[in-house]
Write a protein that binds this DNA or RNA. Structure first.
Lengths: 261, 261
DNA sequence: AGACTAAGTTTCACATAATGGAACCAAACG
DNA sequence: CGTTTGGTTCCATTATGTGAAACTTAGTCT
């Protein structure tokens, strides 16, 4: 994770500072940020002032540390409420969770990455990577592959370039070629499988949520562990998941321009 | 909710545009934003370009609309994970939720407003205002009052100025004086009650999470409805809630500077 | 077709706002 | 009581942002 957005103007730089704070993952001192050597003292200082004043950062005067601010959380809440899929899908996720008793994920794709938009925990919850609001890789997750498989050609090309292809587990498909073959298989099958490709012991069956024009606007998955079930058993639920994905798609489609309150 | 951050430089203005998009609460066209008359065409255009390029907005070329982007969500997720209380409190919220079967809220205070940081639904869930990530008023919610009551004097003064004092229900305390009296009562009692002051039928018992120095760093509440229980019954749980709040406080306190991964 | 309109994009002379080296201040240290 | 470390302010220089206006589509009407 090297040099960031650095490029367009003042705003880009300011956002870069936000990322630095986020990246350190805890309240940070001025000097720690300065030590990154990205911006000169005065410049960095001014950014921190502005961002704090704007509520994007919050400053703890007792400790002299900066952390991410609430305005960010408020904005993200709005983002969630507005990412058409999430509110529509909510009742369907509940339904699917109740029916299967497994972990359910709803994800969307952005810039070649997977964003987990909503989640239901299994009746017996399992610790795993995905959380609502978290961003993850596309090439080695069920939801990611399901969406990649239905991306238009040039969008797919761009997305593939952005994959880091780290070999998380022995099962990870870590070359563009292997992945492309898999995507073709997914298209004929209609659903994607994750055979412990991201985390050992975690398997899933994912289905794309397709717009009328055939673009993937999201994906839905049922996830479990090798300790609890088998891939074949999970795959048996694919039909049901597809039905629900279709319902969500239909509702999303008919929802183009909701009136404002 | 009037004119925003408008004031510090380019960054402030750009963030203002983000708020405009968030405020409309759906994917918006360029012209809609332009119609707000805040920025001239070319200026607005440039901001949208920059923000999109930075991943704070995402642009749908098919419809020509902008909506909030993933980078925002990623940042907000980091904000949540880093706002020390949330991750620490998680297991305790689970515990309290299982024990009481009622709705549990964890909130923090910011700029006189309450931010719901985490939540557990009641075994029989009830629709209500609060959601994790949502911001609400302080003067008429249990968690809000619990935190106000333990604010240092000048911080309280600043917070009070920021209250809108809308009379949501007949029980709402809608004057600073009434509220101050209530805060004194809360301090002697050690917990706050919400007697349907924000939403009719919704009652709650809230407890502040206090730092060693006595500042409120958050609040914890058990919420229910008049249909399900009485205020007295809820209040009976106050002791238990206080214990858990104390545990969270202790853990937060000992957690000052976690090493980075 | 061709004239008209609305929505979005690009240009460019101009002024404002960002820049960062250096000076300054305040604690903490020895 | 000099010195270092961490943070804040100044200010001349110049890069950056600004926004009216010109331009380009893409629709719509006759």
């Amino acid at each position: 994770m090297g040099a960031e957005g650095h490029g367009d103007g003042t705003v880009g730089k300011a956002l870069d500072v936000l990322d630095m704070v986020a990246g350190l993952g805890r309240a940070v001192r001025f000097s720690e940020l300065l030590a990154q050597g990205v911006y000169p003292k005065a410049t960095l200082y001014r950014f921190l002032q502005t961002l704090t004043h704007q509520g994007m950062l919050s400053y703890d005067p007792d400790r002299g540390t900066y952390s991410l601010g609430v305005r960010l959380v408020r904005l993200a809440h709005a983002a969630w409420a507005q990412s058409s899929l999430a509110p529509i899908a909510r009742p369907y996720l509940d339904e699917l969770a109740a029916e299967t008793g497994e972990t359910i994920h709803l994800a969307q794709m952005d810039l070649g990455q997977v964003l987990y938009v909503d989640k239901r925990n299994a009746t017996r919850p399992v610790e795993m990577f995905a959380q609502a609001g978290k961003v993850g890789p596309a090439y080695c997750t069920g939801v990611g592959k399901a969406m990649l498989a239905y991306l238009p050609d040039e969008a797919l090309a761009r997305a593939l370039e952005r994959q880091s292809f780290h070999r998380h587990t022995p099962q990870t498909l870590y070359t563009p070629e292997a992945l492309k073959a898999e995507l073709a298989a997914i298209r004929t099958r209609g659903h994607a499988l994750d055979r412990e490709e991201h985390e050992l012991g975690i398997i899933c069956c994912a289905v794309p949520i397709l717009s009328r024009s055939g673009r993937a606007i999201g994906a839905l998955s049922v996830t479990s562990t090798t300790a609890n079930t088998t891939l074949t058993a999970l795959e048996a639920k694919a039909g049901r998941v597809k039905d629900i994905a279709a319902k969500i798609a239909a509702e999303a489609e008919s929802w183009r321009f909701p009136e404002q309150g």
